[in-house]
Amino acid sequence: MIENTENMTFEESLKALEQLVNELESGNSDLDKALEIYEQAMLLRDRCKKILDDCDRRVQKMIETSEGIKKEDFTAE
């Protein structure tokens, strides 16, 4: 039972979603269980979409300095 999807990676969320779909499609769930699966599936869907819509990815460049490796933001010309 997943309560917080906040820290789940895309891969974990998608895998969990696939498992729920399979469980539901196996037809062994009673109504309560089915509704619970449905709610979980919606949570996981939201998590996946949030990761996909994330525009906050970083593009950085490594720089070797005397104190070791540093990183700074990079924009291609």
Binding site: L14, L20, L31
Partner: peptide
């Protein structure tokens, strides 16, 4: 990205279909 979004939508569709099947049986 869009292909992945579609993949997720397919899953949600399957959940909906199963659930409405269960409700109908009920």
């Amino acid at each position: 990205r869009r292909e992945l979004a579609r993949h997720i939508d397919t899953h949600v569709l399957r959940v909906n279909r199963s659930l409405s099947g269960i409700l109908k049986t009920m």
